[in-house]
Design a binder for these strands. Structure first.
Lengths: 241, 241
DNA sequence: GGAATAGTGTCTGTGAGACACTATTAA
DNA sequence: TTAATAGTGTCTCACAGACACTATTCC
């Protein structure tokens, strides 16, 4: 049977369909560590475990719109940039029924991150621990602010691992790193972002040269305030060319 | 309403669900050009246009398994490596009903490519033309072997564009390029693969050095046959470390 | 020997890492 | 003046592009 024949004979109601959902990895940086917003599950299944904010995709809703809807409903945020990550469709990901989930990634500046935490008391900022086989994308673990390991629901450890893998892969050659920063920032803050994401230390002069040569940084002429030492120059991100 | 409450109240049958499908981008190299396997659509919708091999995901079928099933049913191939590309879920991608499609990418060596063409007479090898804003991922066009532009069905031009974007992005730092080659190959063939995918010419000594330094190439000690000039050494791909 | 391609030696420029240095601020 | 961090000058090394050269095969 060819695809054409199959589709022609296909009765929309004849076959049972998987449910379609979205899950959101909302990442921020706290104390130089990658941090994700998690929700505690109160009921079966996986009650007591921690999960990513998620929701179902409506029949008349584009997938991206469903993701934006979850962003607004569960995290009280709007206008963040969401990037589709991967679609998870193992048979046993959810014990209730077959659910296929499209995972999205959003990077939050500190202001949005704490705004979300304030608006929804059920959200928790969990530090993401990448076992230093990080490159391989192995499962990650989540730690509460007190340092306790949080049990994760469903396959959400895999989703988090893929988010971090993607983030690390794109950090060097794209402008994703700026998404963690406020409107104005110093080169040191930018370097802190890269060091936190990659979990390494970077060479300062080399990092500055690289960033300045890309044409993504517009000097504001302003300087940071409130330091007890020489204040650093503030830059603004501008998409080059 | 929190996610937990939503899921708890969710009645599996209460909401209409999108249909879930997979579409396969099967790429090979012919005459130094990227080439995809397309199927002609005989019936409405998009009758007469060309589409990617695809099929629906069964309720008890993992998404990857559905993709492998399409690979076997529509292309007569087995054991190829499939990589999930992206999930397309616009409301109007299919005029009949809401269909969300998970796109997969497979790279075929010439032997598998022509094997598929032989087994299914409805398949066509279409040259993929990337308008040289290629980097941006703009829509691509497909050309028949005679050079005529083929009208593509649904959003399959976008899917093809994303496949090529992904392929180009991974070529430099991963081993995907070897997927186009037979068991044994020459360095010139490997360079041809890279040049075809990137649509550029590459520097020969630099390319050799880079490839040999990666430790992915095991010399076989054999040489290619049938040339009317100095035969090149044959290498085999080996995953390093 | 000629034609054609395989494969190499070497120069040069670019860019990153290392490291020490200067600059500027608050206290 | 001191402490602390911002920001720079410069050396070195790794690596890619360019180009010319040598090597090897068939005819």
């Amino acid at each position: 049977m060819t695809e054409v024949e199959f589709l022609a004979e296909y009765d929309p109601a004849a076959y049972e369909r998987p449910a379609l959902a979205v899950d959101l990895v909302l990442l921020g940086l706290r104390d130089g560590r990658l941090t994700a917003l998690l929700l505690k599950r109160e009921q079966f299944p996986h009650a007591g475990r921690w999960g990513l904010p998620g929701g179902f995709v409506g029949i008349d809703q584009p997938i991206d719109a469903a993701a934006l809807h979850v962003l607004s409903e569960k995290a009280g945020l709007a206008g963040m940039h969401l990037e589709q990550l991967y679609t998870f469709g193992a048979l046993d990901r959810d014990p209730r029924m077959r659910i296929v989930s499209v995972a999205y990634l959003a990077l939050l500046p500190e202001s949005a991150f704490s705004e979300a935490l304030e608006r929804s008391s059920s959200l928790l900022a969990a530090t993401i621990e990448v076992p230093w086989s990080g490159e391989a994308g192995g499962p990650v673990s989540a730690l509460s602010p007190k340092g306790e390991t949080l049990p994760l629901a469903f396959d959400h450890a895999d989703i988090l691992a893929m988010a971090i893998l993607r983030l690390r892969g794109k950090l060097d050659y794209s402008d994703v790193g700026f998404a963690f920063l406020p409107e104005q920032f110093t080169l040191r803050q930018l370097q802190d972002v890269h060091e936190a994401v990659l979990d390494t230390t970077l060479n300062k002069p080399a990092f500055r040269r690289r960033m300045l040569d890309r044409g993504w940084l517009a000097p504001t002429g302003l300087r940071e305030a409130g330091t007890s030492f020489r204040p650093a120059e503030l830059y603004r991100f501008q998409r080059s060319r």
